[in-house]
């Protein structure tokens, strides 16, 4: 039944037992079509039920199973075992986040930062529902559509050298979400968001390493969002300080 054998070297850490993380190796008989998540599930079901990790959809949309696979942040459900044959694959929780237990990282930091950038539509005046939808042409939709595709898997934070060095940096996914709303023709909240996003912990902590975009499993390209925000916030700053009040409210 099994087509190939995979050696998994999985980071284990139980704060009640271990002073620091250690690695444990499992040998898993895999089918050719499997993803790394299938192999980890095999470990959980057949070898070691004490292994902890997050997963759900198995189709790269819920964002639960972001982890370091062979040193790169990836979704375990979209990393194919056939790409790792004949070698020992090291599996670790996402880099740059504290480890709660085994492959489970602590995500509080991101959740707090996401709230700070106000990732929701802000209007000066709400249109009554009875007047129907806001009009938005396909071109206006395309302007921000790519940035709506973020699944919050946080692979980008694990790849970002700036976030590694400056934990206060709001980071790629959260800032991209701010940009997504800034670019939405229905939104009027850019000025409010810039209080956070144009601050020192915002886009200016980004060094455009582009690592976020390289690892993003959904091709969101957060780096592009952040560079565009740098330009916009610079223009907004000059307009404001030249007294032209050019800010989009």
């Amino acid at each position: 039944m099994s087509d190939l054998q995979l050696e998994l070297e999985i980071l284990r850490y139980d704060p009640e037992q271990d002073q620091e993380p250690r690695f444990q190796t499992y040998s898993v008989p895999c089918q050719e079509e499997w993803v790394v998540l299938d192999a980890i599930n095999y470990v959980k079901d057949h070898i070691d039920s004490t292994l902890s990790y997050r997963w759900s959809c198995h189709m790269a949309v819920c964002g639960s199973c972001g982890m370091m696979i062979d040193g790169e942040p990836k979704l375990a459900c979209k990393a194919f075992v056939r790409d790792y044959v004949n070698k020992t694959v090291r599996i670790e929780p996402l880099a740059n986040f504290p480890i709660e237990r085994d492959l489970v990282s602590v995500l509080d930091d991101f959740m707090n930062k996401l709230r700070r950038v106000k990732p929701y539509l802000i209007r000066k005046e709400e249109k009554p529902l009875s007047e129907g939808e806001y009009r938005q042409t396909p071109a206006e939709l395309n302007k921000y559509k790519q940035y709506t595709l973020c699944i919050n898997c946080l692979c980008c934070y694990a790849a970002c050298p700036q976030y590694a060095l400056i934990p206060e940096f709001i980071g790629p996914a959260a800032l991209t979400m701010a940009h997504r709303y800034n670019q939405d023709s229905r939104d009027q909240g850019r000025a409010q968001r810039e209080e956070e996003t144009a601050s020192h912990e915002g886009v200016w902590d980004c060094a455009f390493a582009d690592a976020c975009s390289l690892v993003c499993p959904k091709h969101v390209d957060p780096a592009s969002a952040l560079q565009q925000m740098k330009i916009t916030s610079t223009v907004d700053w000059y307009l404001e300080h030249l007294g032209m009040g050019g800010k989009k409210s």
Binding site: Y120, L121, K127, L129, G132, E133, R135, T137, P138, Y181
Partner: peptide, 21 residues
């Protein structure tokens, strides 16, 4: 009504050329 409400909250519904849902 509910789907329109979602539109007002920013849901990126696919659009017709004239901008309607």
């Amino acid at each position: 009504k509910e789907l329109t409400q979602l539109e007002h909250w920013g849901c990126p519904w696919s659009r017709e050329p004239d901008g309607s849902v």
